[in-house]
Computed example of a mutant assay.
Amino acid sequence: MKRLLLAGIAGAAALGVVVAWAESGGDETPSLTVLGEPVDAAMIASGQEVYAANCASCHGAELEGQPDWRRRLDNGRMPAPPHDASGHTWHHADRQLFTITKHGIGAVVPGYESDMPAFEGILSDAEITAVLAYIKSSWPERERAFQAEVTANDGGGG
């Protein structure tokens, strides 16, 4: 039942993203890219569906993260952070976000223990990229611009 509710919320939100994108006058925008590739409304909608099915249970249906996400859990690990503008996802380059999602946080921070699984073999590269597009589409322009600069300074993210 919870999964069905999340899927319904995700579908409604994806429709809202697509409508807002279409009303903005274009299918693509050069200001929103992932790994150097332009993002379109279909990619965002697909990313939201994949996010709802694989990420929302920890990171929140509204990208809000877990409560007290800056405070360690009893097991010493950190709760799932938000992916909206209130979190720190936008502080990281595209390539780093992709690597964390595919291979786990340990691939970027060796020895770091996290409850987040690696999604290699679960999600395709295209699905991971779509999730990142969905997440990035939620950020205000200031966070997008900052993250685009971080990505460019990381070698373009491609």
Results as ranks from 00 to 15, higher is better:
residue 55 C to M: 03
residue 144 R to E: 10
residue 43 M to I: 09
residue 137 S to A: 15
residue 43 M to W: 03
residue 118 A to I: 05
residue 114 S to F: 08
residue 92 H to D: 10
residue 77 R to D: 09
residue 110 P to H: 07
residue 102 K to R: 15
residue 98 F to N: 02
residue 10 A to M: 06
residue 145 A to I: 13
residue 63 L to E: 02
residue 137 S to Y: 11
residue 72 R to I: 00
residue 153 N to V: 00
residue 78 M to I: 00
residue 148 A to T: 13
residue 95 R to E: 10
residue 154 D to N: 14
residue 94 D to T: 12
residue 33 T to D: 02
residue 25 G to W: 02
residue 87 G to V: 13
residue 71 R to G: 03
residue 56 A to C: 07
residue 30 P to G: 10
residue 132 L to G: 05
residue 63 L to A: 11
residue 93 A to W: 04
residue 145 A to N: 07
residue 87 G to A: 08
residue 139 W to D: 10
residue 80 A to S: 14
residue 130 A to E: 02
residue 83 H to R: 05
residue 53 A to C: 01
residue 123 L to H: 05
residue 23 E to W: 06
residue 115 D to K: 08
residue 155 G to S: 09
residue 100 I to Y: 00
residue 137 S to E: 04
residue 57 S to C: 00
residue 130 A to Y: 02
residue 4 L to K: 12
residue 51 Y to P: 01
residue 132 L to S: 06
residue 156 G to Y: 10
residue 123 L to G: 04
residue 8 G to P: 00
residue 152 A to N: 09
residue 137 S to L: 04
residue 131 V to A: 02
residue 138 S to Y: 02
residue 121 G to V: 09
residue 27 D to V: 07
residue 108 V to W: 09
residue 113 E to A: 13
residue 56 A to L: 09
residue 87 G to E: 06
residue 131 V to K: 01
residue 56 A to W: 02
residue 96 Q to T: 14
residue 118 A to C: 03
residue 99 T to I: 06
residue 20 A to N: 08
residue 51 Y to G: 04
residue 94 D to I: 11
residue 144 R to M: 14
residue 17 V to D: 01
residue 140 P to A: 09
residue 69 W to C: 10
residue 7 A to I: 08
residue 79 P to N: 11
residue 54 N to S: 11
residue 5 L to W: 10
residue 64 E to H: 07
residue 72 R to T: 03
residue 46 S to L: 08
residue 119 F to A: 00
residue 82 P to S: 12
residue 42 A to H: 03
residue 50 V to I: 14
residue 108 V to C: 04
residue 93 A to V: 05
residue 56 A to P: 05
